[in-house]
Design a protein around this nucleic acid. Structure first.
Lengths: 342, 342
DNA sequence: GTTAGCACTCAACTAAGAGGAGTGCTAATA
DNA sequence: TATTAGCACTCCTCTTAGTTGAGTGCTAAC
């Protein structure tokens, strides 16, 4: 168990390092207002804290730097979210100024403002389209041999895909098909469409329409292909500002990671509520060993969830980011819940 | 006018520098097979070429580096596109293997393969949606007060937007509206929709439907907002590989530029056919002073155009890139023209 | 006209030394 | 007994000086 003085010193060191990105020495700490003891005392405590694994040195005679364990302790026990002011709040509010109806636009804007306010990179996951349910299905023929299939979901999302019409496919064939599909598919979630199509609809269609197989196939790929929720980025190059990323390779690895959908998705915790912090190697990805990721979720309507991640150096301003995320997740949830129904 | 020998030496220097990114000395050149004269002779010629502005030195006793004027001359007079082999061709062909109907997918794939084959960054502009014409207009109500407007274009593109329904808007109101809009808008290009709506349709609608104004407004913003053609990127971080971009600031500037739609669009020449090369400061953007941009266009159907840009260092492998672009533009044009009609 | 020879230049690397921030330990102090 | 002043020691960082080598420009010989 740490003594009160050790807690105070640990906090001071982490705060200082987060601010200046330089190893902190005993003298530096002793000059702070809240610290009342001498550098020598601090040095003793620092040696203890280092033995306990909370601090590290970059070389024998350097100041101390928080270890991952140190950050973890700081985040778990010493963090009181704060550091946002009324101007920040105002800027967050500006996301909702436009009275926009579209979820996508609001999320995009949130990503930008979050990255601006934190000066880190933000990633926002939109609603999981796969869980939307079909509201209306339609087909618009473009020429004698091509057409567009369109699915509108209960949340107003539109999924569409071009496909080839079988030769000699008539307008009445098309109409029959659309009717059958609407009868059977309305209310089905996009993730269940394949099963439904293959299990029930295919046989029915085959009785009424020629060469339904090809068509069903096109439809299946249409809904499978967009299987992940949309991803929005803010401040992709913000990490260039951080002194710890003045190394091209690190930056590159992270940028590359952000281009890979699957990698990005794995940054997010399974849907738990609250704010989650992963520090350095707590992230599974090797690329992220110098990064911390703070994630949280927000609600979209009753049964949908979106997610937010902020990526920064382990020396991240946890206080501020946590406070900001808390505000923005509440605002997003509120904006997407009220005045919105099926 | 340059002598034959000067041409030969200039070409050898540019080729060598493109390959190794190191200032080239007279000895280095003299060792090449096609060069039959001594280093001393070459030094004399190099001094002349420098006086003429085709070469530069990094310091008094360094080897020579092509100047922008040197590259320009090389590109204009010494370039015979080549350097692609059957494996490259094969890889390009693989873009079209899937028998995909969708333009977007093919373009996306092209961007990736181009960046892979060149090891530079590729940017592809899809068709200019604004010039598509309306094929079908429809509205799908989601709840008592929201609905989605959907426009399908002649090329199979789908544009959609949510909007609020005025209170007490009935199903028959909606039907009337959709009918009127289809009557008036089918065949109109997206860029002309606003005028058409405001000039003709509004008055007609006002006679038949209550609170048409709000609705029209939503529709106008829906079509205005997606005013640019879609942009697809390949190998965004490829430039990290180039030794001239081992400087964080340069990389950052270019990455930031690529996040700005308007900047990206201004990289493209006004629609001229053929392949265009802009070297270093020939680009208007300051961020691009160390880059060359090679652009070309391809056809999508009869009246649409897409564009391709490759961004690399001024020390770009022009030969190879030009050859690759030539192949891919022809293949894209072919793929998008045959079997495709209104 | 071409080339060998040579003095000269300058970036890049290495080595040595000075300065300074910060530590750990010891002994004095409250 | 807990705290602190004092001091020797460590090691990073910056500067300076010297060395090496690739490459040039010029001159004189071929």
């Amino acid at each position: 168990m740490l003594t009160n003085r050790q807690l105070q010193i640990l906090q001071a060191i982490v705060d200082d390092f987060i601010m200046f990105a330089q190893p902190v020495g005993s003298r530096q700490i002793s000059k702070k207002q809240e610290i009342t003891f001498s550098p020598a005392t601090i040095r003793n405590e620092m040696a203890d804290l280092e033995e306990l694994g909370f601090l590290e040195k970059t070389h024998t005679s350097s100041g101390r730097v928080p270890s991952e364990k140190g950050y973890r302790f700081y985040v778990d026990h010493l963090l009181n979210p704060q550091g946002i002011n009324s101007r920040d709040i105002q800027q967050i509010q500006s996301i909702f100024n436009d009275r926009l109806v579209e979820v996508e636009h609001i999320i995009r804007k949130s990503a930008n403002i979050l990255s601006e306010l934190t000066s880190y990179t933000s990633i926002l996951l939109g609603p999981d389209v796969q869980r939307h349910r079909v509201k209306r299905f339609s087909i618009v023929p473009l020429s004698s041999d091509t057409a567009v299939a369109i699915i509108v979901t209960n949340n107003g999302h539109v999924e569409n895909r071009m496909f080839s019409l079988p030769p000699n496919f008539t307008a009445s064939d098309l109409e029959k098909m659309v009717n059958i599909l609407n009868e059977r598919l309305v209310g089905v979630s996009l993730e269940d469409i394949h099963k439904k199509l293959e299990a029930e609809v295919l046989t029915v269609l085959q009785q009424h329409v020629r060469s339904a197989d090809d068509f069903i196939h096109a439809l299946v790929t249409a809904t499978m292909h967009n299987s992940e929720s949309k991803i929005f980025y803010g401040g992709k190059t913000n990490m260039f500002n951080q002194p710890e990323f003045h190394d091209l390779n690190k930056v590159r690895m992270i940028l590359d990671l952000m281009e890979t959908t699957s990698q990005v998705q794995s940054l997010f915790q399974p849907n738990e509520s609250g704010i989650h912090i992963r520090i350095g190697s707590e992230n599974k990805q090797l690329e992220m060993e110098n990064c911390s990721v703070i994630t949280t979720t927000y609600s979209i309507g009753e049964d949908q969830q979106g997610a937010i991640a902020i990526i920064g150096p382990t020396r991240m301003d946890y206080k501020r980011v946590v406070a900001l995320l808390d505000v923005i997740r509440m605002d997003l949830t509120q904006a997407f819940t009220k005045n919105r129904s099926d």
